[in-house]
Nucleic acid binder design. Structure first.
Length: 489
RNA sequence: CGGGGCGUAGCGCAGCCCGGUUAGCGCAUCUGCUUUGGGAGCAGAGGGUCGCAGGUUCGAAUCCUGCCGCCCCGACCA
């Protein structure tokens, strides 16, 4: 492992990339724009998945699995949906290879598919074509299904975790008898995402609804949570869409209501992806490497032995065993790093790079005194504690760290969120980086003008943005609420 | 798709302009000894179709032609 990572100040994107690669989270693969998620990175994703999955199930959802391939005809049924995704679809056209006269492996032109298959960029169409078969009566509703899957969007420019051609995600697809119910579901799932972001990722988010031009292709309303990264840019961390009856109409999904009327089904869909990994990294990490919130850290405590010979290591091993037994009773995950091939200093640096919240170091000195050195990743603070009762101290400290990094992120967001009442003010803030709350006349033209001139977009219109009389910073037309603007990932 | 750049050891690069005999450096790897409370030191070793294909030449990493791949900027974008 090479020393050091680029500092945030020097080159923020390089810093991000260094962390991903050097903390062993992921790397680029031989396929353009597609990444390999390495075991340590995948372990973090698994922690996220586990918690989200639990939250989905607690709210009555079930998991299912739908095909990777979508027949082109399904895909093209909902017009705005096609418009939104057509330019980034991978398409399967053949099903066989052959060897030509030169001995090369080539596509067998005789094995052309009658109908091309789209590799799913999202599954609304395949799922709604299936729901048609499942839904006939109001008694069949609601359907509350989630799927954990991979999807492909052929992006022009990719970055590890933040935007890759293939990514992992979950997509919820629900069907309801009424608009109210579907809207309530849409909101509920956004709340779940926000709770997960704040309580688990320790990342404060702003809930709101998207402007029309940022809406999901085929949705009537898109809600999002937006988080601020350390460079002041916004990252969309999750979306929940109210799809109205668009997909039901496109796929002819009707049900007979209690009153005996034939009606179209109402829908929602919602998703978060491996992009959350990128958010997690950029929300908390520092120039020494990753900083993980204890609740998502695959290893919460790492123990590094310090010794001069095999005898000393053996003594330490026995002591460590006592400690780890106690950690187990407190449900604390740990790793005893007894590799003899690396020296302590190397291990310290490595585990800091990997963001382990707490490090214990124990050597002959400690054995003699019944003590242990404890270092916090979030503050870099080091303290000597008695081994007796250390498990309680660690348990409390893990909560404190979780809390501390959330507060730190919240403070940073507050310090970098501003109100602007003139376009000049607005431009200055955007230039520097940060969130801007400003009045906007509600038109796509103004939104586009702002984006063209400043590269900032409307992230969302925050739910907690109070009603107030204002004037659009560009056109001066009246506005009732401030929208959240920022440059975004 | 437009503009720019790059392909030489696992990674990062020098050499190319001005052709010349064993193709070099740093990191990593391996071996040995000494080390181990903040990324060890010394000594030695291994590792290369110089992106691919042609051409020019006594001789090509170096010059010429074609091709392929990748990266950056722009355009595009849940």
């Amino acid at each position: 492992m090479s020393k050091g990572i680029t500092s945030r100040q020097e080159d923020y994107s390089k810093w991000y990339n260094d962390i991903v690669v050097k903390a062993d989270l992921a790397e680029n693969s031989g396929v353009r724009g597609s990444m390999v998620i390495k075991p340590y990175g995948y372990a973090i994703w698994e922690k996220m998945k586990e918690q989200l999955d639990k939250m989905f199930k607690e709210t009555g959802h079930q998991n299912a699995y739908f095909p990777l391939f979508i027949p082109k005809s399904y895909f093209t049924k909902e017009a705005s949906h096609v418009d939104g995704f057509a330019k980034e679809c991978a398409v399967v056209t053949h099903y066989r290879l052959k060897t030509n006269q030169k001995g090369e492996i080539v596509v067998d032109e005789n094995a052309k598919l009658e109908e091309e298959l789209i590799v799913r960029p999202t599954s609304e169409t395949i799922i709604w074509s299936t729901y048609k078969k499942w839904i006939h009566s109001y008694r069949d509703l609601p359907i509350l299904i989630n799927q954990w899957a991979n999807v492909v969007r052929w992006e022009m420019r990719t970055r590890l975790f933040l935007r890759t051609s293939e990514f992992l995600w979950q997509e919820g697809h629900t069907a309801h008898a009424t608009a109210e119910e579907a809207i309530a579901e849409t909101k509920q799932m956004l709340d779940i995402y926000a709770e997960f972001a704040e309580k688990w990722m320790a990342m404060p988010v702003i809930k709101g609804s998207k402007s029309e031009s940022e809406r999901f292709a085929g949705a009537l309303d898109t809600l999002s949570i937006e988080a601020m990264m350390q460079d002041g840019k916004a990252l969309q961390a999750g979306t929940s869409h109210f799809l109205g009856q668009n997909f039901a109409k496109a796929f002819e999904v009707k049900f007979t209501s209690k009153e005996g009327n034939e009606e179209y089904v109402w829908a929602s869909s919602w998703g978060v992806s491996t992009r959350l990994m990128g958010a997690l990294i950029m929300a908390h990490s520092d120039d020494k490497g990753l900083v993980l919130p204890p609740k998502l850290a695959p290893i919460q405590v790492v123990i590094v032995p310090i010794y001069k010979n095999e005898d000393q290591l053996e003594t330490i091993r026995i002591k460590v065993k006592e400690i780890t037994e106690k950690l187990k009773t407190k449900d604390i995950s740990f790793k005893f790093d007894d590799r003899t091939t690396q020296r302590p200093g190397f291990k310290f640096a490595e585990w800091e790079l990997k963001g382990v919240p707490i490090r214990l170091a124990i050597g002959p000195r400690d054995i003699e005194n019944g003590t242990i050195e404890l270092a916090r990743r979030d503050t870099s603070e080091k303290k000597i504690y008695n081994i007796e009762g250390i498990e309680n101290i660690i348990k409390d400290l893990l909560h404190e760290i979780q809390d501390n990094i959330f507060k730190k992120a919240l403070k940073f967001r507050k310090e970098n969120t501003f109100k602007a009442d003139t376009y000049d003010e607005f431009k200055k803030i955007i230039e520097k980086g940060g969130f801007v709350l400003a009045h906007w006349d509600g038109t796509a033209e103004t939104e586009e003008k702002i984006q063209q001139e400043t590269k900032a977009t409307i992230r969302n219109i925050p739910f907690d943005s109070p009603e107030e009389e204002g004037k659009c910073i560009v056109t001066g037309k009246p506005s009732k609420r401030r929208a959240l603007f920022a440059k975004a990932y």
